[in-house]
């Protein structure tokens, strides 16, 4: 297993956390389920019966997406998303804690980085960034393990989308011949989109979930490596 590495990125930290009402349902996965969320594998919908989408075990559960591993079904990407609605005239802030990790890293021969994207969807397949323009909120290659805490103000133009969704997509990286069959995970937790000024929703502390998730990931990859070895 790769050496555990914890990193952090804090994007657009606009203000100190404050109490706000979120438009996200079950953003903290507090019931240790995907209630309120939708899952998609390769654009085919929620088809996976393997470990593409799991919930990390308690006490502070989180969503975990997995690709390119032996116990996954995705050929291209797994996407976790939730339809949302933003009121025009209000300003919103997105908060989310992410942890990504890979079985292999750039220190390994043949490593091909998987990657993940956080974006808003418009229902037609196009993705948008926090500025309301085509693109994404955040994306990164997964090279070893890293954690991210996003705290981002959203542009009001997003409220104009009738079929807006918040999406977390974990993609398999390829070279010209295929993937490296090295699994990568993306843990998603403490997701909230709150109107700035709301005062009745608490934001959970990301650090505990981050550490917990990383430990789980290590177990996942240990299993996968054994499985791969058995195939050979």
């Amino acid at each position: 297993m790769n050496k555990l590495m914890i990193g952090g990125v804090l994007l657009l930290l606009s203000a100190a956390p404050q109490a706000m009402a979120s438009v996200i349902t079950n953003g903290g996965f507090t019931d240790c389920s995907y209630n309120g969320w939708s899952k998609d594998t390769d654009g085919a919908g929620d088809i996976s019966v393997l470990d593409d989408f799991t919930i990390t075990s308690g006490p502070d559960c989180a969503a975990e997406l997995l690709v390119d591993a032996g116990n996954t079904e995705a050929w291209f990407a797994n996407t976790l998303f939730q339809n949302i609605s933003l009121n025009s005239g209000e300003q919103y802030q997105l908060n989310v804690d992410l942890t990504a990790g890979s079985e292999f890293s750039s220190a390994d021969n043949g490593f091909i980085a998987d990657n993940f994207v956080v974006a808003f969807g418009d229902g037609s397949g196009s993705y948008y960034g926090a500025d309301g323009q085509l693109g994404s909120v955040f994306s990164a290659d997964i090279d070893g393990n890293n954690s991210y805490s996003l705290n981002i103000m959203l542009d009001e133009t997003l409220s104009a989308f009738a079929n807006l969704s918040l999406e977390f997509q974990l993609l398999i990286g390829f070279d010209e011949f295929g993937s490296d069959f090295g699994g990568s995970f993306l843990q998603v937790d403490n997701v909230s989109i709150t109107a700035v000024g709301d005062d009745n929703v608490a934001v959970s502390a990301p650090s505990q979930a981050l550490l917990f998730g990383l430990g789980l990931a290590g177990l996942v990859f240990a299993n996968r490596q054994r499985s791969t070895g058995g195939d050979q």
Binding site: A119, G123, S126, L171
Partner: peptide, 18 residues
């Protein structure tokens, strides 16, 4: 151009050229 994402609605890769 951005990294590719999977457009799950249309089942295609998508990239944004800015």
């Amino acid at each position: 151009s951005s990294r590719a994402t999977v457009d799950r609605v249309n089942r295609v890769y998508s990239s944004v050229v800015t």
